[in-house]
Design a protein around this nucleic acid. Structure first.
Lengths: 208, 208
DNA sequence: GTCTATAAGAGGATAGAC
DNA sequence: GTCTATCCTCTTATAGAC
């Protein structure tokens, strides 16, 4: 990779600061409630300057999503290095990581049905590429887990993948944290258990 | 209960029509994307007339939430009549019902963090009363299920309750439906399984 | 209580100087 | 590329006639 000039480095640093702010606001308020004014204020620059870097609010959100997917890929690659580990433990580790990011207030959350945002994301090559990479890495573990019987083979693999994505922004976490009866670690382990073991648990099954 | 006059009946019918429209729009677009103009258009009356019945957009949302909680209470009471049934089966039946309501496009969904809305709901006695009633009914089944070991006794009862509420508006359902590889009934049973049995399933546990 | 018309303000995006 | 100032649209809510 070519050495970056000083100006380019400054530019990238600024854009990184913008994306970090967007990421935090997206985690705190969600896409609709986040205003571009608030982003500009948090970064400490004028709103017009933001639009020199990103052409729309949707582009800002896309950049934040790409950033968190990149962070996920780094985490996944680190786990892949441990070739001896059980694939279900790897999947649990990824889910635990997403819960911890959520607890840290760093998991951007987008509405499921905003059409303008949806359109922008579906037209964003980089976002789609990262999403596909994460899906493929997890998909390999999921199919392996189902083949070994450690993941429920009766479930469609897509259902397991979508469920993991959904747990990364599960509102149960913030409600549990707000109830203030549990430590962060306890909340994470409770959610992990409900996700992988279910509400019935895997203990001694009662007679039917 | 006192007999209603004709004018009162017309009034109530109109308000019911408004709440039905709000409910549908809330399910389709969510609170932020729903506009009061759209509600008025769907009901077929002027926007100013809406404000004679409900004093704010937040009140409209609260009315829709109260309505769905009332529907839930009717469902729960019907299930309670079956005193011989297993409590876990009752809880599954309630969850199945919420998934079907969601599939029918009739489950209003509110943002988790909208502060104006949150404030209005927390100040709405009727809403809080209905929410408490549903929580109490489900709470009885949950504690009974944990006592019998058919629900995981290691989980806090609140965690089970919150998880059931969260599954009532789980985005996984709409994504699975959009993937178009499954019938509505299949989607419902898949989500029920992931919720109660977990991703690992309750089949023959693999050796650790 | 229903309507038409409009106030009041928030928020996304841009113009143009530097 | 950064700023200030502004545009313009959308949306909530209300005024006032009937």
């Amino acid at each position: 990779m070519a050495r970056k000039s000083f100006k380019e480095q400054v530019l990238l640093a600024r854009e990184e600061a913008i994306v970090v702010a967007v990421n935090r606001l997206l985690a705190e308020k969600g896409f609709d409630a986040m205003t571009v004014d608030a982003v500009a204020a948090e970064v400490g620059i004028a709103k017009a300057s933001l639009y020199k870097h990103f052409s729309s609010k949707e582009e800002l959100a896309a950049a934040a999503m790409i950033r968190v997917l990149d962070r996920a890929l780094v985490k996944i690659e680190a786990l892949r290095a441990d070739t001896g580990a059980d694939v279900v433990d790897q999947l649990k580790a990824v889910t635990r990581w997403t819960l911890q990011v959520q607890l840290a207030g760093e998991m951007p959350s987008l509405p499921a049905q905003n059409s303008a945002l949806r359109t922008a994301l579906m037209g964003n090559k980089v976002y789609l590429d990262r999403l596909l990479q994460v899906s493929e890495r997890l998909g390999e573990w999921i199919t392996a887990g189902q083949a070994s019987g450690r993941l429920n083979p009766k479930l469609p693999a897509e259902a397991i993948l979508y469920t993991m994505f959904a747990r990364a922004c599960d509102p149960v976490l913030s409600v549990m944290k707000a109830s203030a009866n549990f430590s962060d670690d306890e909340v994470v382990e409770i959610l992990l258990s409900t996700c992988f073991d279910g509400l019935q648990g895997r203990g001694p099954a009662a007679a039917r």
